[in-house]
Design a protein around this nucleic acid. Structure first.
Length: 234
RNA sequence: CAAGGUACUUCUG
C-alpha cells in the first residue's frame, strides 16, 4: 500500500532514479502518493522535463486527480527548466480546482514564475494573494534580485516592513544580492549595519553573501574584515 | 488507520 511510494522515495533519495522509475512502473497500486513520489524525485534533481512529462501522462490516463503536492512538485520541475509556459498550465489547474487562495500553492506559483523570469506573472499572483507569509515575500524578492531588479527588491522590503512582516535571513540575502545591480559600497555598509542590528551578524550564509557582494563591488578590504570575523572559515 | 508538498550564499554547471 504505502510501501510503494516509500520505496520510490528511498531510491530517489539515494540518487537512483532509474530504480525509482522501475518501481514506479511495476507498482500495482498507483495513487497520488506514488505519482507525487516519482514526479518530485525528478523535479528535485532538476529533471523538469521528465516531471512535466509524467504529469502529462497522469492527466492523460485520467485515473488519478492531481492534488496539491503533485501540483507543487510539477511547478518545481517547471522552475528547474524555466518552463513558464507549463507553469501557466499548472496555474490554470490551480484556478479550475479553486485552489488559488491556498498559500503554499500561490507561493509556489510566485516562486516558479520568478525563476522562469516571468516577473510580471509572479507579481500578478503576488498582488492577488489575500494572505502572505514570509515565503511569499522572499520568493518574489529573491526572484527580483536574481534577475538584477535591485530596486524592486528594496521597494518590496519597504512595503513588507509597512505591512508588519519581519525580515529574515532569506529576505536579507535578497537585499544583499540587490546590491549587485544597484549597490555602491555605501549601500552595502548600510545594509551590513542593518543585518547586525537584526541579529544576523553571525549567520554563516549571510556572512558569505556579504563577503561576495563586498568583493564584487570593490570592497575587498570590507570583504576581508567580514572573513576574519567568521567563526569557521572554509 | 497511517505515507507525499513551497523561499535559501559563492564557484562550477
Amino acid at each position: 500500500p504505502f510501501l510503494w511510494s516509500h520505496l520510490i522515495r528511498v531510491y530517489a533519495a539515494c540518487d537512483h532514479l532509474m530504480e525509482a522509475n522501475q518501481v514506479f512502473l511495476q507498482n500495482p497500486s498507483e495513487s497520488v502518493f506514488t505519482w507525487s513520489a516519482i514526479i518530485s524525485a525528478y523535479s528535485k534533481v532538476g529533471q523538469g522535463q521528465n516531471a512535466i512529462d509524467l504529469f502529462h501522462e497522469m492527466q492523460r490516463a485520467g485515473e488519478i486527480e492531481a492534488d496539491k503536492p503533485i501540483l507543487l512538485a510539477v511547478l518545481k520541475g517547471c522552475s528547474a527548466i524555466s518552463a513558464s509556459y507549463y507553469a501557466r498550465i499548472i496555474h490554470f489547474h490551480v484556478l479550475i480546482d479553486g485552489l488559488e487562495s491556498d498559500l503554499s500553492l500561490s507561493n509556489c506559483l510566485v516562486d516558479t514564475y520568478a525563476k522562469c523570469k516571468s516577473l510580471s506573472d509572479a507579481r500578478k499572483v503576488f498582488a492577488d494573494q489575500t494572505r502572505k507569509d514570509i515565503i511569499t515575500w522572499s520568493s518574489l524578492m529573491i526572484g527580483y534580485s536574481d534577475h538584477g531588479n535591485g530596486y524592486d527588491v528594496l521597494m518590496l522590503h519597504c512595503q513588507m516592513q509597512i505591512e508588519g512582516m519581519d525580515t529574515n535571513r532569506v529576505t536579507l540575502i535578497s537585499i544583499l544580492k540587490a546590491c549587485l545591480s544597484i549597490g555602491t559600497l555605501f549601500h552595502i555598509k548600510f545594509i551590513h549595519a542593518y543585518i547586525l542590528e537584526k541579529g544576523f551578524g553571525s549567520d554563516k550564509v549571510i556572512c558569505n553573501t556579504l563577503i561576495d557582494v563586498y568583493a564584487k563591488c570593490g570592497g575587498l578590504k570590507e570583504a576581508h574584515d567580514v572573513f576574519l570575523e567568521l567563526p569557521d572559515q572554509d
